[in-house]
Simulated assay, not measured.
Amino acid sequence: MKYQTRKKALMLLADGTIFYGKAVGDKNGTAFGEVCFNTGMTGYQEIFTDPSYFGQLMVTTNAHIGNYGTNSEEVESDAIKISGLICKNFSYTFSRAIADQSLEEFLNKNNLFAISDVDTRALVSYIRDNGAMNAVISTEVDNIESLKEQLKNIPSMDGLELASQVSTKESYYYGDENSSIKISALDIGIKKNILRNLAKRGAYIKVFPYNASFEEMKAFNPDGYFISNGPGDPEPLVDAIKTAKDIIANDEVLFGICLGHQVIALANEISTYKMHNGHRGINHPVMNLLTGKGEITSQNHGFAINREEAEANKNIEITHVHLNDKTVAGIKMKNKKVFSVQYHPEASPGPHDAEYLFDQFFEMIKVKVN
């Protein structure tokens, strides 16, 4: 054990429930956020840097975290985006040929507070039963009443707009400028592997801030449009919803992932709602209703679109359904070149069953171009 005596720590949920553990490393700390859990066995570095997790305390259900270290290439944004980490066993040593540092060093460089030795099985079971809620992790184990008061001031994820805090401040380009296909992407929390998947299929992408208008995106003269994943409640994203409406009205090719999927639904007057505890993991089963085939998918979302409203909308066809709870996992617009999914076809981490969706996007673009 690297640290023979580690500081006591706790996790305090908004309803007053407490789980005890120990601080990772030798520092004091406190972190607030909505508690959520991810069931993935691997991919912790990609999860921690995914902008969709901004403002959340991450519980990892895998028993060992940190055992394969970190690699500078395996990130989904420029920094860690979770608010804090809760795990069972934290590995201070690691074994992996391509790792360039330990997870502890990675967390310290990003100034992230983490606690371990928590009964994560009991914690996840509690969240499943009682729903996602705000929480705090801290070494201030003797100041529980003070932590309770501070926790009251943390805003609920329901109604919270977070895309502006993770989106790019200025537009930028990605890919080969000599590519024949150009795509305008709206960044409301975009993952790097989405851009990699677009670029490797021959696209030159211009990435726009969360509040960019259709006119701004159109000025790039793109062949297709994309709306990314991201954190928080989709309903406050009035600019993105307006942009999606304008893209659709102009009969453009449009693809949306996760938060982008929800924005496209809202642009079609389909409401969204906060889920009991969300879907977060790399083995979620989805049925493709168009092909009749099942897909194992990577998911990360705490909101979903209203299925009854989607079924009643004459312009919408439900294309994918989550097999665990029958929530909508994909839609497309009838008589429009618009589709979206409530999961991550780019994976990172996760399986590649759904990578065909990027190919589908490019096929639609090529039909339009030709």
Results as ranks from 00 to 15, higher is better:
Ala135Asn: 03
Ile316Lys: 01
Val35Ile: 14
Asn306Gln: 12
Ser125Glu: 14
Lys2Ile: 15
Gly29Trp: 08
Ala203Glu: 10
Ile205Met: 11
Asp251Ile: 14
Ala244Met: 11
Ile86Trp: 01
Thr243Gly: 13
Lys2Ala: 15
Leu12Pro: 13
Ser138Val: 14
Asn197Lys: 14
Pro285Gly: 00
Asp26Lys: 13
Lys148Thr: 08
Asn193Val: 04
Leu160Val: 00
Val367Cys: 04
Gly131Lys: 13
Leu186Lys: 04
Phe54Asn: 07
Met58His: 08
His279Lys: 01
Val286Lys: 02
Asn229Ala: 04
Lys22Glu: 13
Gly175Cys: 14
Asn193Arg: 09
Gly159Met: 00
Ser52Gln: 07
Glu149Trp: 03
Ile282Lys: 01
Lys326Phe: 13
Asn268Ala: 05
Glu177Trp: 04
Val369Tyr: 01
Glu215Leu: 03
Val35His: 10
Thr42Met: 00
Phe48Ile: 03
Asp359Gly: 08
Ile296Gln: 05
Ser184Ile: 06
Asn108Thr: 07
Glu74His: 04
Gly278Thr: 10
Leu107Val: 09
Tyr126Gly: 02
Pro209Asp: 12
Lys245Asn: 09
Asn288Ser: 09
Ser171Gly: 05
Phe220Asp: 08
Arg307Asp: 10
Tyr53Phe: 05
Glu170Tyr: 02
Asp187Lys: 11
Thr291Asn: 01
Ile248Lys: 07
Ser156Met: 02
Ile296Arg: 08
Tyr92Phe: 15
Gly330Met: 04
Gly292Leu: 07
Leu198Gln: 01
Ala312Val: 06
Leu259Met: 11
Glu145Gly: 00
Tyr210Ala: 09
Tyr343Gly: 02
Glu170Leu: 00
Cys36Asp: 03
Phe220Gln: 06
Leu57Gln: 00
Leu151Cys: 01
Asn250Asp: 14
Thr120Val: 11
Asn313Pro: 10
Ser228Tyr: 01
Ile18His: 11
Tyr173Ala: 07
Ala203Gly: 05
Lys88Gln: 03
Lys27Glu: 14
Val369Met: 09
Ile86Tyr: 09
Lys27Cys: 08
Thr60Asp: 04
Asp233Ile: 03
Asp78Leu: 06
Ile183Asn: 05
Gly224Lys: 14
Lys2Thr: 15
Glu252Thr: 08
Glu355Ser: 09
Lys148Asp: 00
Val253His: 10
Ile318Met: 08
Val24Pro: 15
Arg196Glu: 15
Gly29His: 10
Asn62Thr: 13
Leu289Asp: 11
Thr70Val: 09
Ile316Pro: 07
Val59Gly: 05
Glu252Tyr: 05
Ala97Gln: 10
Gly131Glu: 14
Ser184Gln: 05
Ala79Ile: 03
Phe361Lys: 07
Gly260Asp: 06
Thr30Pro: 06
Ala79Arg: 02
Tyr20Asp: 15
Ile144Phe: 12
Ser213Arg: 06
Lys182Asp: 12
Phe303Ile: 01
Ser171Glu: 03
Glu309Tyr: 15
Phe54Ser: 10
Arg121Ser: 13
Ala354Lys: 02
Ile205Phe: 12
Glu309Asn: 14
Asn134Cys: 01
Ser77Leu: 07
Ile331Asn: 05
Asp353Met: 06
Thr291Arg: 09
